[in-house]
Amino acid sequence: MSEPTNANTAAFEPLLRIEHLRKVYGEHVVLDDISLEVAQGEVIVIIGPSGCGKSTFLRCINALEPIQGGTILLDGQPVSAEAKNIAQIRQKVGMVFQSYDLFPHKTVLENIILAPMKAQKRKREECVAEAEKLLERVGLLDKKDAFPRQLSGGQKQRVAIVRALAMHPEVMLFDEVTAALDPEMVREVLDVILDLAEQGKTMLIVTHEMSFARAVADRVLFFDEGVIMESGAPEEFFSHPRTERAQRFLRTFTFDAVKHHAPTSDEPAPLFDD
């Protein structure tokens, strides 16, 4: 892992600027007044309990969810589901989902070159050459003619990452991309993302893999109940979380601490009494 990348050397205008973002489902406020600036090359990891709005936040950045307030500017251009040129704007944002969502009727290679050819009108040979290069980098060149159903979960997810990268996005969004994978496949996918971080890709990553978050992040955001509760450098956040919520959340990942400590009064009562 390189030094925390150029977060400080950011140009005057951040790549992504989000101001007072508000997202509501009926009565329920999912995201409340979220503001965030992401510099070119910055890697932001978003963590938080499920239902805290972190996935919805990513989906808003790609205009997969309409928003009820605030603005999202990518490269100074507004991102909104109603925008006429939304398909063009989305080409600048690569997104990878938990469930891979490869197109089952197309081979690996066809999955990758579809959008560059159709949406960006690039030449087929050029797209194929690039797809093969990317596949090689993630160790899947030999699978280029396979269909998604012939791949393991980890392989599918790596193809999904390559498919997003082939569009040359300015920012990549990862929405719990290892959550559906068997443990032994998590690593191969995270390694690809680490590799991207080293190359200086701007990324927003929602994950539950805490040690990965610590390794990859320039900045960690802790979401809870639709707001950013805490934001800071990973070393700082993981060793000294400031808010009580973040402390409690991080504690759920450390089983040793729970086992070896005598229960104190503020810890929940044991589940099983015998």
Binding site: N62, L64, A87, Q88, I89, R90, Q91, K92, V93, G94, M95, F97, S99, D101, L102, F103, P104, H105, L114, A115, K118, A119, Q120, A160, R163, A164, M167
Partner: peptide, 26 residues
């Protein structure tokens, strides 16, 4: 699945492209 539409949208394909390339063939 809705995710097929969404991942195609996320790739920046237009509505007609999504239908022609992804949804109708399936």
């Amino acid at each position: 699945p809705r995710h097929q539409y969404e991942s195609a949208e996320a790739l920046g394909l237009s509505k007609p492209q999504i239908y022609l390339q992804v949804i109708i063939p399936q």
